[in-house]
Design a protein around this nucleic acid. Structure first.
Lengths: 189, 189, 189, 189
DNA sequence: CATGAATGAGATTTCATTCAT
DNA sequence: CATGAATGAAATCTCATTCAT
């Protein structure tokens, strides 16, 4: 085996390894929530705990990586929805649906997103960096079209939606989607 | 000292002590949240941990006791507001303001209120028992007056409001009161 | 009420009180064993825990008092059995039956009787003071009659019997009476 | 270092550590009994408490491991004694000597062996699984040879012996070996 | 003298994080 | 670079014993 190939295969290995890790973490997050013991995730991935820590020094790093694709997809959907919807408000509504669908299926994610625990600062920031501009854009468009009030920051709206999604999966009497619908209705001018 | 007085003075003592406990717990809850270690609360009160357990066997019992008065006051304010407000919707709005004021000043309370942890079941139940009938009454009045949609359960509304209050005290960019206002606006028919 | 009467009735009260205590302790010992929490005994007696401690400073004192009558009765039965039995060995056998009957019906008593815990020293001593002379007498009589070996101390025999009774009530596969029978059979010359 | 070696050396390390643990536990058991606090055992071994729990999730697991070798040796000695002794009864007697020697030197072991505490169920079972068949075999052989009565179960006999050994080490006036001798003598037909 | 509230040591158990192999 | 054993701080809860009322 040549050095070049060796190096390349190592990189490939590392990528595969990281993929395994993220899949395992995602699976454990579904059943045990995003605060599941590191040991459980490592076990699911079939690696040592040290490997998790090497790739993702903090839990926030791991969570960010696990949901990176879905968050990016959500961010990217914003402009498309704005272009394809009948109105900015409709685009906003549909985009928020996407965001809510994402959140309510992630056991415990909404909860850590608003956690004031210092360790989750990164997570908070990362999600907001991706989504806040999109949400801002949609809110501005709807506000400019006179469809909604103009005095609300995207940060507040997203945070509110995030909060409404907390614990949505463990209580059949509570329908986060419906309440978010009420909130969005409340934005109307 | 007669037996009667003796017994009474002991009870008075215990009551005084319980007051100390509740004050200490309230204080610790403010700084460390309602999930603060029992040891910390005991230390703050200047009592042994056993004393906490004697008075409040579970953490839920303690939290309920700490906030009992405020919850009751909130519950009692409902009918009064309904009688004194210009409209049922206005009464609802003002009552919810009270509820939100209560929640946002209780570090971590909103979070445990929606926790699916079995230990907090009592807490959950206790709060709902007091407040749900009041909220139901206000929602029905407003719905009957045609001011709001009639398809939302009080449970959902209260839970939504509770969720919006989570973490409200640790983030200056997030104003739970304002968002709850948006939610209430969204109830309009 | 005269002083004399007052004093006498107080003594009567104290006696009644102590009787209540012992009955309650006996009852709790039956269900929870002789190491039951002091609180439980006090509750059963309808008195404060301090009252228990006043009358019986150590647990051993309480246990001794609870079983005083039965131990005395057992001690007194010795000479009678010796007089009325066909042989000293037969008297010994029947006396040990009494002792075993006493022990196996006292949940946990046999266990604390051999405990090396300093607190139970009194208990140990008290029981032995009453019963050892009786047992010694019976063993000597049987030994002198040539029915059993003469090299065993009463202390050892009683302790052995006590040990064989440990846990006899919680295991249907173990019959302490039968094993004690084997032990007594083993004493034969 | 190859993977194979790396893995093997790690296991060797863990084994060494486990040995340290067992030695420490054995030492603490001698001085403080088999119910010594986990913290004490960890301290003696110079490890964290978590290490104990990792290797031996329950106290019963630890006790079983500490005495595994001796119990096995005792079990294995049974057939040998049967083959090498002058009579089955003699083999039984000598085997029971081994068992008693084992028990009386284990502070508190005999006591937990008959404890009805659920946590010690495993311990109880483990010991019986090893020793009961051996004892049964010896009793049957002696019974068939007409040397002892045939109506006693090995369980009862072992339990009785175990009981006789309780507290044997803390009382110079009590010689468990001698009393067990009496019990065994009592088995004679 | 009786009460029972209060004390607080002590035991168990979990899990994030480190680091020797 | 990976492993997972080890660490040990934290938190909970119990109950014998004391002592203010």
């Amino acid at each position: 085996m040549s050095n070049g190939e060796g190096r390349r295969s190592k990189r490939a290995d590392a990528r595969r390894n990281e993929k395994t890790l993220l899949d395992a973490a995602a699976a454990v997050f579904v059943t045990s929530g995003v605060e599941a013991p590191v040991r459980d995730i490592a076990a699911k991935a079939g690696v040592g705990m040290g490997t998790i820590y090497r790739h993702f020094p903090t839990r926030a790093d791991l969570i960010v990586a696990v949901y990176r694709h879905q968050v990016d997809a959500c961010a990217e959907a914003g402009p498309e929805l704005l272009a394809s919807s009948d109105s900015p408000y409709e685009a906003l509504r549909r985009w928020i649906d996407l965001f809510v669908d994402f959140l309510v299926t992630k056991h415990g994610l909404a909860a850590v997103l608003q956690s004031d625990n210092a360790g989750f600062e990164t997570l908070h920031t990362s999600f907001l960096d991706s989504l806040l501009p999109v949400c801002t854009r949609l809110l501005e468009a709807a506000a400019e079209a006179g469809e909604i009030r103009a005095d609300l920051q995207a940060y507040e709206v997203m945070r509110g939606i995030g909060n409404l999604c907390i614990g949505a999966d463990s209580d059949p009497r509570y329908d986060a989607r419906r309440l978010v619908g009420v909130l969005i209705a409340g934005l109307r001018a």
